[in-house]
Computed example of a mutant assay.
Amino acid sequence: MTPEDLAALHAACFTTPRPWSTAEFAALRDSPGVFLCGDETGFALGRVIAGEAELLTLAMHPTARRRGLGRRWLNAFEATARSRAAADAFLEVAADNAAALRLYQRAGYTVAGRRNAYYTPPAGPRIDALVMRKMLAKT
């Protein structure tokens, strides 16, 4: 997928946090440790640095939701992170994003922290961000 494809799909999915631009996706794709799992239905963009994985964004096209594809790309993110020697995975999600929270909790992520009033929506009050963590390494 090109940075243009990623930006268009991201824009179809998000208003809060704001959609990322083509230039932002291009810069991320060129960054060390960054990887992409996905297709035109959705994608997971992640990175692994120093044994920690970060899910930068997970986007599913609105017409492709509720088919298990979000879980598919989350699993692919985790598998790629493990293959790159990540022991833990982190992500950030808007506290009011119930569907994403369910997905992450069912996948074994737990809340590790809260960033108060982190996101600024187009209208209304600011929204907290939840930082979530999952151990990837088998103990």
Score class of each variant (00 low, 15 high):
residue 62 P to K: 12
residue 134 K to W: 02
residue 114 R to W: 05
residue 90 F to Q: 08
residue 137 A to Q: 15
residue 61 H to G: 00
residue 14 F to I: 03
residue 132 M to Q: 07
residue 27 A to I: 06
residue 86 A to R: 06
residue 57 T to F: 04
residue 107 A to H: 13
residue 124 G to V: 06
residue 29 R to Q: 13
residue 33 G to E: 02
residue 45 L to C: 06
residue 36 L to T: 00
residue 49 I to M: 06
residue 90 F to W: 07
residue 57 T to W: 00
residue 37 C to K: 02
residue 36 L to N: 01
residue 106 R to N: 15
residue 103 L to S: 10
residue 66 R to Y: 10
residue 19 P to D: 15
residue 115 R to F: 13
residue 41 T to H: 15
residue 111 V to D: 12
residue 75 N to A: 14
residue 125 P to G: 13
residue 136 L to R: 10
residue 49 I to L: 12
residue 55 L to F: 03
residue 55 L to P: 09
residue 91 L to Y: 08
residue 36 L to M: 00
residue 67 R to Y: 02
residue 111 V to Y: 10
residue 108 G to P: 08
residue 131 V to H: 02
residue 23 A to G: 09
residue 56 L to M: 12
residue 98 A to Q: 14
residue 117 A to T: 09
residue 127 I to E: 00
residue 138 K to P: 13
residue 137 A to P: 05
residue 31 S to T: 10
residue 84 R to E: 08
residue 121 P to Y: 13
residue 123 A to Y: 09
residue 33 G to W: 02
residue 73 W to K: 05
residue 108 G to Q: 03
residue 67 R to P: 01
residue 127 I to V: 14
residue 66 R to K: 15
residue 22 T to A: 05
residue 120 T to L: 14
residue 29 R to M: 12
residue 139 T to R: 15
residue 133 R to K: 10
residue 59 A to G: 07
residue 25 F to T: 02
residue 53 A to R: 04
residue 17 P to K: 09
residue 61 H to Q: 09
residue 7 A to C: 06
residue 96 D to K: 00
residue 113 G to Y: 12
residue 21 S to V: 02
residue 55 L to V: 11
residue 68 G to M: 06
residue 78 E to Y: 05
residue 87 A to H: 12
residue 109 Y to H: 06
residue 4 E to K: 04
residue 71 R to A: 15
residue 93 V to K: 01
residue 35 F to D: 05
residue 61 H to I: 03
residue 35 F to C: 03
residue 100 A to G: 14
residue 85 A to D: 12
residue 128 D to N: 13
residue 66 R to C: 06
residue 18 R to P: 00
residue 54 E to G: 05
residue 98 A to L: 07
residue 2 T to E: 05
residue 100 A to Q: 05
residue 112 A to V: 01
residue 86 A to H: 09
residue 24 E to G: 13
residue 138 K to L: 14
residue 53 A to H: 02
residue 68 G to E: 10
residue 109 Y to N: 05
residue 1 M to I: 09
residue 82 R to G: 07
residue 72 R to Y: 01
residue 106 R to F: 08
residue 134 K to M: 00
residue 136 L to P: 08
residue 52 E to D: 01
residue 78 E to M: 08
residue 72 R to I: 00
residue 10 H to P: 08
residue 29 R to H: 00
residue 123 A to G: 01
residue 71 R to V: 11
residue 32 P to V: 06
residue 114 R to C: 11
residue 73 W to I: 13
residue 41 T to R: 15
residue 77 F to H: 00
residue 136 L to D: 02
residue 4 E to Q: 11
residue 90 F to H: 14
residue 85 A to P: 03
residue 63 T to W: 14
residue 26 A to S: 11
residue 33 G to K: 03
residue 65 R to C: 02
residue 40 E to P: 11
residue 50 A to I: 12
residue 99 A to W: 01
residue 110 T to W: 03
residue 111 V to R: 08
residue 41 T to Y: 01
residue 5 D to I: 11
residue 52 E to A: 13
residue 42 G to W: 09
residue 71 R to G: 13
residue 28 L to I: 05
residue 14 F to V: 11
residue 19 P to Q: 14
residue 124 G to K: 08
residue 111 V to M: 11
